[in-house]
Each structure stands twice: as structure tokens, then as C-alpha cells.
Amino acid sequence: MIHTIYIEEEIRDHPRTLRICQRFPNARTIYCERYTSVFNNNSQNFRLQKKNPALILAKKHQKYVLPTPAGYGVGSERNFYFSHMLNCLYDCRYCFLQGMYRSANYLIFVNYEDFFEEITNTASASTEDSWFFSGYDCDSLAMDPVTDFMPTALEYFSNHPKSYLEIRTKSTQIRSLLNHEAMPNCVVAFSFSPNNTYKKLEHGVPDINKRIRAMKKLQNNGWRLGLRLDPVIYSPTLQADYESLLENIFQSIDAKLLHSVSYGMFRLPKPFYKKMIRLYPEEKLFSLPLTEHDAQVSFEQTTELSSLETVHTALLKYVEEKIIFPCR
């Protein structure tokens, strides 16, 4: 429940600002010059804010679209991401957002059209297809009833067939997708962890079976689906955990219709990892014997390689090698 909404003066009368505020008639509204005064100040504490985050409505002025880090794509050469929102409704303990931001407030940039304009410019710089990933700094769908971003995004991408949209999510908020005709240039990518990781680390995330049901509904409606197994977190029962998860998913989902599967080991940039230890010193995950390699903190390389191989082998039982993409 949102109890406080910070609004930048510049967009106080923007139609999306007014619509979002209407959803929360009892929330306190506080106007500010720039969102940076309330988001990411030095002395803010992510863990404390996460207990009761506020909503911030702001205008983004630059860098709407950025190249993805290497190894993020699913087969294309031209990969970009954009974030109309920062932070997430859920609270996965491994989430890098905790290390990246000091604030857990939900920040929504209401000038969606500026994102699409830059997407157009980025795509038109090449004749090749371009992929645009949503859900890098947030969950793409979890807050969609509030942001109402998807209907606008789907409309845009349905008119730009050479631009591909990936909607990455752990949410079951699929109404805006079901209300729209399925699009060949859009992939709805669902992220999963095995049940024990889900239970211990993915706080507030919808139940695994509910997410599988949401996937099935979308697949029945013609939507292309992706499966994302990232982060893989080592466990002595890793093989059985992933075999059981995949069996559960592919009992409902037609593997032959799947667009892509990607997986990647749990990894964090060292400064993020250090910050997350300070926030959650009691968290077992951050006390496991992790090591630093390739500028990231992760499991030691032999554990990493064998874990990824296990996941890869488990996937081959259901999907073809050519749609599996390891993330580094």
C-alpha cells in the first residue's frame, strides 16, 4: 500500500501523474524539485525503506536507452535496455538493486513517450533487428496496474516490428498482455528459481505454480515466452531441485513454442556485494564461500561451472540447444 507519493513539480499536472495519484486517494503527496532529493541520498538505508516504500513520480531527462552488459542477450547482436521504473515490488534477497541503490522507494518516470522516441532512434541506427529489454532495474509487470506502462509499450512495439521487446518478470500481472493481441516481436520472459531458493530468498514473489499458470494463459493466447533461470545459486541438491522445477514448468508449458531459455550463476559486482552484506549481515547467502573473479563476486569457478552444466543438462531434456543462452 502506497502511503506517500513524491511528485516532481515539473510533472505535477501530467496526465499519468494525475491518474496514478487517483489510485491512492489516501496517500500523502509531497512535491519536490528533482527526484534525486528523495532517491539515493547518501544516508538512506535500503533495508529500512523497504519496510514501507514511497512512490516517486518523476521525469527522466536523458539516457532513456542503454546498451545491455555483454552476455545479456538471447541471440541478437544489438541489445539495449530501458527502465521506466527503478526498484521492485518484490524483495529477492539476491537482487542487485539492493546493492545499486540506497533507496527502496519506487521511482516511476512518467514520460514514457521519450523512452519510445529514443528506442526509435536507437533502432533506426541499424538495419538489423534490435532488442530492447524491460525489467532490468525493476520487474516489468509487477507494478503495471499502477504504471499502466504495458498498454503504451505494446502499442508502440506493434507498430515497430524490427524492434523486439523482452518483458522480464516474476509477476502474474498479465492482464494488459491478455487484453492485447500476441505480437511476434515481444517475448514475455519469466524468471524462476527452484522451490527452496524461492521460499528462502524471493520474498513477496508470487508462488511458482501461479506464475506457471500465468505463462500457460499467455502461451494459450499466442504470446512468445522466455524462461530465465538467473541467478542459479549453488546447493548440494541443485540437480534434483532444477529437475523438479523444470518438470513442473514443462508439464504445463509447451517447450517447442518457447522462444528462449537463459541461465546465469549468482554473481554481483564487489561494491554491491559489500553493501548487501552491510544491509543483511545475517543472510546466509552472503556468508557462503564466495570468491572474486571476472570483477564479480560469485561461487568459486569449479562450483560455478559444474552448477551451470547441471542446469544446462537438465534443460536439454526439454528444449533444443539452439534456444539456450548462458548469461555471463
Partner: peptide, 18 residues
């Protein structure tokens, strides 16, 4: 919201409820 009139500095104390 707290403003220092002399310096123009401002702070937004986090609101935990309304």
C-alpha cells in the same frame, strides 16, 4: 520537508506512514 532558509539546503525525512 525541511528547508534551511539561510542556505537553501533541503531534506525530505522518510515517511513511514500517513
Amino acid at each position: 520537508k525541511i528547508t534551511d532558509l539561510a542556505t537553501g539546503e533541503l531534506w525530505y525525512p522518510h515517511q513511514f506512514s500517513n
